[in-house]
Amino acid sequence: MSYIAANLVKTGGIISLLIGALSACTSTTVDEFRQGETGIENHESIVILGRRQASDYETRSEFVDCVGEHMGNGTNSIRVVPEQEFVDAMFPWFEPRTAPLRTSDLEKLMAEEVVAQKMDEFGVRYIVWLDGFTETSGRTGSISCTIGPGGAGCFGFGTWEDDASFDARIWDVDSATSVGTINTDANGQSYLPALVIPIPLIARVEANACSRLASQLKDFVNGS
């Protein structure tokens, strides 16, 4: 009995290791370009906004929320104003059609008394513009599933590649200047082998891009 249990544990451990090894097949590159000095006080906050002007894609709000959550937690955490709360409070100045595209537009926007007052209420020191998307390519393989009186099962193999590419542009609200850009590119191969039961081994491409970008942004804004 204990022999079977030990074998089961051993088999489970091997499967876990295999899944862990395969699901970790993601490579992430982060590039930073600094244009100005940064730093943030305790009473100040940042807001992370997704760019949604492009016709064929838009930066997903889930990715924006993910970066915000990572920056708002852990050591050297930064106060992050939630995107939707900020956009609603600033309505109609940060809608896809009206949002500032350049720092010169921000300067003009800050000349509006109602905008400057709201920005002050939030204590926003930096605006981070996130722009990008995750693309899936190279889908190959096939899986077929059958069901019969004796049971059901799937057989086959599928694979695909995910590529997440995101830019973060950081604007200093006080000086209405761009202080830097951080580019993140993550890619990874996902696998779906099916031997009776499909076992998805998903490359956590977007999640990795989010955590690496958030970590780099946190250091950047803190000036370290």
């Binding site: 309505f91 109609p92 100045w93 809608e95 896809p96 059609r97 009206t98």
Partner: peptide
């Protein structure tokens, strides 16, 4: 809803 927000922003401004 996004289109309606777009209308509101462009109309009001």
């Amino acid at each position: 809803v996004v289109a309606l927000r777009d209308l509101a922003s462009s109309f009001s401004l």
